[in-house]
Simulated scan of single mutants.
Amino acid sequence: MRKFIISLLVLSLTSGACFYYYKAWTTESVLSRYGSRGQEVKNIQYQLRKWGYYKGKIDGIYGWRTALAVRRFQRKNGLRVDGIAGPQTLAALGLPTGRSTAKASTSASGNVYLLARVINGEARGEPYIGQVAVGAVILNRVEHPSFPNTLAGVIYQPGAFTAITDGQVHAQLESSSVKAARDALNGWDPSGGAIYYYNPAKTTNNWIYSRPVIKRIGKHIFAK
Rank of each mutant, 00 (worst) to 15 (best):
L151P: 07
S175I: 07
K57S: 11
A136Q: 09
R37K: 15
E143V: 10
M1S: 09
H220F: 15
S146Y: 09
P96W: 03
A194M: 11
F73A: 12
I214L: 14
K57L: 07
E126M: 09
P212Q: 06
K76G: 02
L31K: 13
A180T: 05
A136P: 06
I221T: 14
P145W: 01
L93S: 03
N186H: 12
W188T: 11
L185P: 04
G78D: 05
S175P: 00
A108W: 15
V132I: 14
K23A: 14
R124S: 13
A163E: 10
G192S: 11
G110C: 00
L114W: 05
A108S: 11
A108L: 09
F161Q: 06
I164S: 04
A123P: 04
E40F: 04
I214A: 03
P148R: 04
F222P: 02
G121S: 07
V178R: 03
L114P: 02
L31M: 13
G187V: 12
N186L: 01
W188M: 14
Y62I: 12
V41Y: 06
V70Q: 07
E143W: 06
K76A: 15
I217F: 05
Y197E: 05
N149G: 06
A136M: 09
R99V: 13
K3F: 11
G16N: 13
I61S: 05
Q168S: 13
G83Y: 10
W64A: 14
G60A: 11
Y22F: 14
H170Q: 08
A108C: 00
S15V: 15
P96L: 01
G218N: 04
V112Q: 02
V132P: 05
A201Y: 00
E126D: 08
L115E: 08
G135N: 10
Y53K: 10
R124C: 07
P200C: 10
E28N: 14
P148H: 03
L90H: 02
L151D: 10
G38K: 09
A24S: 14
Y46W: 05
A152H: 14
Y62H: 12
I155D: 12
F4Q: 13
A116G: 02
V169C: 01
L185N: 04
Y128T: 02
Y197N: 03
G52L: 11
R80W: 04
